[in-house]
Structure formats: structure tokens, C-alpha cells
Simulated assay, not measured.
Amino acid sequence: MADSHDTTTPARRRRADARRSIDAILNAARVVLGERPDAGMEDIAATAGVTRQTVYAHFASRDALVAALVESASAEYAALLDDAGLDTAPPAEALAQFLAAGWRFLDRYPLVQNAAAAGIPRPHSDPHDFAPVRLERLIQRGQHTGDFDPSLPADWLAAAAFGLQHTAAAQIAAGHLTAQEAEALCLESTLRLCGGKPRH
């Protein structure tokens, strides 16, 4: 009797090869569309080191590929927030970690900064839905511990903090600030906004 392992190994290998192709295509789409939002499938295929036929074998259309990229980006941002210690670190440190996760996300997915203009679809788990809730909960915790000023609503402060980070990102894109300058200003401004102690 043939070993069943002999019959499953090729299938596993095909699945692993397919997964590698999909990961390469998504990574190429992240890079290419981040630089040129109107880039086509051929450009993405060339960057991924595969043929257009291979791309279409995994993604039926450019829209399908972009949708998959957006879902992947959303999941990655959620994982960054999960790893940031938002519920356990001291509030000011947790706030810095929250913003740092946002900067890492924007650095890897610059396309999302102009999502509306580029016609990027909303993911099923949209960061605009889950990230403000995480930040609001963090600010509330800081208000309860006395690290942040409780005189303003936490949901307002969370919305304003996102506005500050978007403004800082726009300043980087326009060449008015370096990434390091913008990130430092954004953190100090957000701490002051929340009534926390400035870091300098």
C-alpha cells in the first residue's frame, strides 16, 4: 500500500507555491500602487516576478487584487495595534505606541492615504471602524488613571488625534517636514491635546 504521505505532499507543495505567489503579488501591489496608484496588472506582475497570467490565476481582476490588498493591509494594522500594548502599557507610552503603529502602517501602505482619490474600496474590517475605538478606550483609561485630562470627551480626543496624524502625514507628503519631525510633532501635539505631560 502506498504511503498516504506520498499523495498529499504534492498537494501541499502546490498550496505552498500558490501562497508564495499570492504573497509576492500582494507585496508587489503594495509597493507599485503605493508609488503609482494607477499602475496596471502588468507592472505588478513584473515587480512580483511572475507573469500576468499568474496574477490573473489568483485575482480575477485588478479590482479583486486591490480589494485583497486592502483586506491584507487592514489585518496587518489590526495586528500592529494588538502588539502595541494599548491596554497594559502606561497611558502615555501606550499612546506613543498607538501612533507608532499608525506610522508603520502608513509607511508600508502609502496608498491608503489617498484611498478615496485612488478609488480604494473599504475593507470588511475597516481601520476607520476599529482603530478609533481602540484609541478612545486608551484615552479613557488614561483619564481614569489621571494621566490624561478628563475634561474633554474621549471620542472627541480620539478623532482629533487621528486628524493630527493625517495632517502630519500630509506635511511629510508635501515635503514640509521629515518623517522624524512630523512623528515627533504629532506625538507631542497629541499628548498636549489629551492633557498628558510633554515628553520634552
Rank of each mutant, 00 (worst) to 15 (best):
R199A: 15
L86P: 03
E183W: 01
S4D: 01
V55D: 04
F130V: 05
V133L: 13
I172S: 04
Y109N: 05
G196R: 10
G85N: 04
R62I: 12
D107R: 12
V133C: 04
A101Q: 08
R15S: 13
I22C: 07
I139L: 14
A11R: 14
A29L: 07
G196H: 09
H58D: 02
Q113Y: 02
S151W: 00
P198Q: 02
R13W: 03
S189L: 09
D6H: 08
Q165T: 14
A64N: 02
E71L: 12
H144D: 13
G195K: 06
L26K: 12
M41V: 15
L152G: 05
A96R: 14
A45R: 03
V70C: 06
S72W: 03
Q165K: 09
G142M: 06
R192T: 08
G195A: 05
L135H: 01
D129V: 07
T145C: 10
A169H: 10
D149C: 00
W103H: 13
T178C: 12
G146P: 04
A170P: 03
Q97K: 13
A94M: 10
L152W: 10
A94R: 06
L193H: 05
L187V: 04
L187Q: 08
R137T: 15
R30Y: 00
A45H: 07
V66I: 15
L135N: 00
L33A: 03
L106A: 14
D17F: 13
E181Q: 15
F130I: 06
V31Y: 02
D155N: 05
A160I: 00
L152P: 04
A75I: 10
M41P: 00
P37E: 01
R134I: 11
K197A: 11
N114W: 03
R12T: 10
I25Y: 09
D38V: 01
A28M: 09
G195F: 02
E76V: 00
A92R: 13
E181D: 14
Q140N: 09
